[in-house]
């Protein structure tokens, strides 16, 4: 009886494995063929009449929702402008840091404007347009237990959000640090407040903004690793929208759009430590 049960178990596992491999097999075949048609070209978007943009919904001052339920922020303002210049309506799709790439690849959105930092790994899976912002990774810690050097983090818990540049940097470059990974910005800051880790790493501009409202904490390490750029991203191979976006960024930079956007959306959130020229880019 026992043996029979075991045999059955193995059969079930075998069939399941077969099923998965069949699924995966036909998947990879289809994936290659679907590259041939671009469903998100500029012409297609104009025809459809809506631009689908992936934005954050919980990251003030870049992408968040105000108390009247409107989406606002530095990225969101750019998104609205891009849709306006394309002459189409905008549809926001709220994403987490972790599913920005999948939203593009699964064709859920046309463009990602969700504080998406350019990295070489990400370049392999999506196409980045010209940058509209620059940052580097910073580390925030409580005032009374300040972390100012990476060496202080050795074998300590460091809080990060999954899929962020901070996570990638510490995973690849600082292997002696224990990472405590969370799904959303909300969770990561709650974790820091609940002392689940000694510090938290994220983009420094964002940390400056957070520290301004949480004076018990300080950005002990202001910049670590190389300077990072934040760009709009489109689906890999969507050259039509990529070229259009590049021209748009150049045009907007010349028109001083980002300066205005910075003054309106970011300046009220950042402390005096940050200047507009620290964040925006002159192409």
């Amino acid at each position: 009886m026992r043996e029979l049960g075991l045999k059955r178990l193995f059969t079930t596992i075998g069939v399941l494995a077969l099923l998965v491999s069949v699924l995966a097999g036909c998947g990879s075949r289809n994936a290659s063929s679907s590259h041939t048609t671009n469903q998100n070209s500029v012409a297609k978007i104009k025809k459809r009449g809506t631009l689908r943009v992936a934005v954050f919904g919980d990251l003030p001052p870049y992408g968040w929702v105000n108390k009247s339920g409107q989406r606002v922020g530095y990225d969101v303002t750019l998104a609205r402008r891009v849709a306006k210049d394309l002459g189409v309506k905008i549809k926001f799709v709220q994403v987490n840091a972790n599913n920005r790439v999948d939203a593009l690849n699964a064709n859920k959105v046309d463009i990602v404007l969700a504080n998406f930092t350019v990295t070489s790994e990400r370049k392999q899976v999506v196409d980045f347009a010209k940058a509209y912002m620059k940052v580097s990774v910073g580390v925030v810690s409580p005032q009374n237990a300040k972390i100012t050097k990476v060496s202080q983090l050795k074998d300590q818990n460091l809080i990060v959000t999954k899929g962020t540049t901070a996570e990638n940097y510490f995973t690849a470059m600082q292997t002696s640090v224990n990472l405590l990974k969370f799904d959303s910005k909300t969770q990561q800051f709650n974790a820091l407040k609940n002392k689940r880790g000694v510090a938290l790493a994220d983009d420094n501009s964002y940390l400056y903004a957070w520290v301004k409202n949480n004076p018990k904490y300080t950005v002990g390490i202001k910049g670590i690793g190389p300077k990072q750029y934040i760009s709009p991203a489109v689906k890999k191979g969507n050259t039509s929208l990529l070229n259009w976006t590049n021209q748009e960024i150049t045009k907007l930079t010349k028109a001083g759009f980002f300066k205005t956007d910075y003054q309106q959306q970011l300046a009220p959130y950042f402390g005096k430590e940050v200047k507009a020229s620290d964040i925006i880019i002159n192409h």
Binding site: G57, D58, L59, P60, W64, V65, N66, K67, V93, Q94, V95, N96, N99, A103, K108, D183, S184, K185, T186, F189, W210, K212, N213, N214, Y269
Partner: peptide, 25 residues
Amino acid sequence: LMLISVMDVINIGQQIIEANNKTAP
């Protein structure tokens, strides 16, 4: 459901929490 961008009650809750984190922690 927040994982797949459904605007359910938890997702809206997190939006509100983050939007007010500065004035009402």
